[in-house]
């Protein structure tokens, strides 16, 4: 399908034309929020609720 632009640069350019800035920002936002919540939040309720998960994943915590 995409042999002409089959390079990393081509793919980046193509993504730029396919997605609107809003979509990109939304995607990055969701990923950042989920990643931060799972790995780094130290608030006691959140932390204690995810305690077993963080130990099972080997993420550094408390």
């Amino acid at each position: 399908m995409a042999t002409a632009n089959d390079s990393v640069h081509g793919r980046i350019e193509r993504a730029g034309t396919e997605l609107t800035p809003t979509q990109m920002a939304a995607g990055l936002g969701v990923v950042a929020a989920l990643g931060f919540a799972l790995l780094f939040v130290q608030e006691p309720t959140m932390h204690d609720a995810m305690h077993n998960f963080r130990h099972a994943t080997g993420v550094t915590c408390h």
Partner: peptide, 23 residues
């Protein structure tokens, strides 16, 4: 004294595990 009960920790940890895979 953890801030939440063991059942909540177990449940949230399992859901977090699934979300971790999705992420």
């Amino acid at each position: 004294g953890p801030a939440v009960s063991a059942a909540v920790t177990n449940g949230v940890s399992v859901v977090s595990g699934v979300l971790w895979g999705v992420l």
